Structure formats: C-alpha cells, structure tokens
Computed example of a mutant assay.
Amino acid sequence: MIFQVKKFNELATSELYDILQLRSEVFVVEQDCVYQDLDGKDQKALHVIGSKEGKIIAYTRLFDGGQYFDTPSIGRVVVDANERKYGYGHDLIKASIKAIYDAYENRTITISAQTYLIKFYSSHGFVITGEEYLEDGIPHIRMIKQP
C-alpha cells in the first residue's frame, strides 16, 4: 500500500469523491450510523490516503492541536471492509502517527476511539483517558498517545 498526506486543496476531485465514498460505505452503511460526515472540518485537516493498485482503501484525517482536541488528533479512521484482513489498519495508524510527527509541533495525539477498537489502538501506544461515551450513537472512549 502507498500512503500520501495531502492538504484539502491538494486533493483531486476524484480523490475526494473516493474518500467520501469509502467513509460513507463504512460509517453510514456498514455501521448503520446516520450522522453528518461532511462537517466542515475536512478543509482544516491533513488527509492520509492509503492506496492499493490505484484504489483508495484506507484513510484518516488529522488535525493540529486546538482544531478538534487540545492536542493533534486522528479521526475518520477507515479501511475498506474487503482489505482489513491484510492488517492495513495498523499500517494506516503508523502512517498517521508519522504524519502528525512530521506536520505538528505537539507530539501528543488524542483520538476518539470506538470502544471495540481499544486493543487495536493500545497496540500503537494509545491509553484510555476517560469514561466511555456515545458519539453518533456508537460507544467511544478518549485515548491519548504520548510521544
């Protein structure tokens, strides 16, 4: 898989379409969650795009501290359902952490993790920092990774 990190204005129209389609396939259809994905924050984010054979199969968006949480953050973590068995989620998180370290001064990272993924994020050095809460009807927990 090949990773690219782009600002919003660097995304081609076809890339943006493919990203939004992937997010919709997973978050709206697969997870049966009706929510406002187009939240006006994509324009402020860095976009980590994972492609395989020319197709976008993995994606995250990153924010500097103060834009979403007090520290830099990773969100909209998504891997195409047909590609998850290859461990690309781990590659995606590693690429996202590296992109934050390259782009932002503060190296503490905050995420709002779906609770069923605690073990996954823990394997990348994230630790739970609060109580479980509902976000768009799905149980989440705040996790932080220290540098």
Rank of each mutant, 00 (worst) to 15 (best):
D70K: 13
Y133S: 03
G40Q: 07
D39K: 10
Y86R: 07
Q146D: 06
D64I: 12
G66Y: 06
G66T: 10
A45G: 00
L92F: 13
S112L: 02
V79G: 03
D32H: 13
Y121C: 09
Y133W: 04
Y59M: 03
N106F: 05
L92E: 01
E15L: 01
E10G: 07
S122N: 14
F69R: 10
E30V: 05
Q21K: 15
V127M: 12
I57H: 00
G50Y: 00
E132Q: 11
T13L: 15
E83T: 14
E83N: 06
Y68I: 13
P139K: 07
F8L: 04
D91V: 11
V48I: 13
S112A: 14
H140C: 04
E53Q: 13
T110Y: 02
L20Y: 07
F3P: 01
D64K: 13
E53N: 15
V78L: 06
R23M: 04
G50M: 09
Q67K: 01
D91R: 15
Y35Q: 11
R61Q: 05
T71H: 15
I144V: 12
I100P: 03
H124S: 09
S14F: 14
F3D: 01
P139A: 09
D42I: 00
K119D: 08
Q114S: 05
A45F: 02
F8D: 01
V26N: 02
